[in-house]
Design a protein around this nucleic acid. Sequence first.
DNA 1: GCTTTCATATGATCACTATCATATGAAACG
DNA 2: CGTTTCATATGATAGTGATCATATGAAAGC
Lengths: 204, 204
Amino acid sequence: MESKPLPRPQVSRTAAKQATRALVIRTASRAMRRDGIAATGVAAVMAKAGLTHGGFYAHFASKDALAAAAIDAAFAESSRRIARRVEGLAPAAALAAWIELYVTTSHRDDRSRGCALTALGSEASRGGDAMPAALARGMAQLTDRLADWLAAIDDPAPAATAGAMLAEAVGAITLARVLGATAASDALLTATRASLRRRAGIPA
Amino acid sequence: MESKPLPRPQVSRTAAKQATRALVIRTASRAMRRDGIAATGVAAVMAKAGLTHGGFYAHFASKDALAAAAIDAAFAESSRRIARRVEGLAPAAALAAWIELYVTTSHRDDRSRGCALTALGSEASRGGDAMPAALARGMAQLTDRLADWLAAIDDPAPAATAGAMLAEAVGAITLARVLGATAASDALLTATRASLRRRAGIPA
DNA sequence: GCTTTCATATGATCACTATCATATGAAACG
DNA sequence: CGTTTCATATGATAGTGATCATATGAAAGC
């Protein structure tokens, strides 16, 4: 009954399973950032991934576990995007590039591919343990990156500056989304970009 | 059947109804800021207000309408709190007082009485029309207030600075909540206060 | 005092949700 | 080729949500 004959787990089967798992996570990551976690149903995610809801619990222990994985995936995606954008740039230029990538109307308008901190920070930090932990990991990764650049341009307190800059960027996208695609919203983003550039010691 | 004899609406009855309406809104405002809009059920709000769920639709057309009213109430509450705090202060001191009121661990830790922009900005800006409109109203009121103070201390672009400062404050609370009540979180708030003070031209 | 009005309560509906039990069908293995 | 394994599908279940229909009981008006 509880014996474990254990014929040893296969590998190629497992690989296929991991692939669909990754697909479900990617799908959920988009949907949750766009509609929120609560508003994103498990069945809807599975359907959008081309599956049915039945197999879900073979992949995840709970919806919260999926959400945590979705947050991790969102940060991984963002991280890749940043890396691609700053490749080969000097620290000051990298900071400027990050600002131009983050504080933009397209980030405001495309929630599904945006930063998990702005999209899910509020909702995810209320629930469970796994979700806030995933957010905190991604946030630390991002502030570390900013702090490295800031240290390289002789900022006196790179970690503190990085945190405050990220706060400003996150808040700007949040507020810009509140205002929608309006002139006031655009102006807020423009003002924030200027403010961040100034703080990063970038003239222009 | 469809005639309207119309004996004229009474007044004192109406006053009582408005009182319970206000109570329901206040209750919802707290609950929604703490748990989010989706996670706050209509029946739960009514129960917490000492009523049953039945009468709800005599007061509000929908849950969204309640949420919009709850957002308005949250801003009204915050506005009163700010007014009380800055009463009689000169512009620079008022700005400093606002920073000390907003970017604090107690704001981070008490979601239910905090700013609606941080608590509900993300979620409410996704849905309907009424909720984002309420948020935008409250936000405009707040940025106007900050801009007035900034103009009085000769900031060259009060509106832009006000927007960027609010963004930083909102983002800081959001990120601090992600980190929970930790040393890193406290440090982020401290760094953000310093950053905001510097921006508002306050030495200290 | 009787009747009408209306704020709130009781109770139901219907959609949808997360979660789980079981079935199926193809790949892996002997 | 037959058997086993397991990833996914089919099909419950049980709860919860918003919303609405109707009942009730007290105050308002005559």
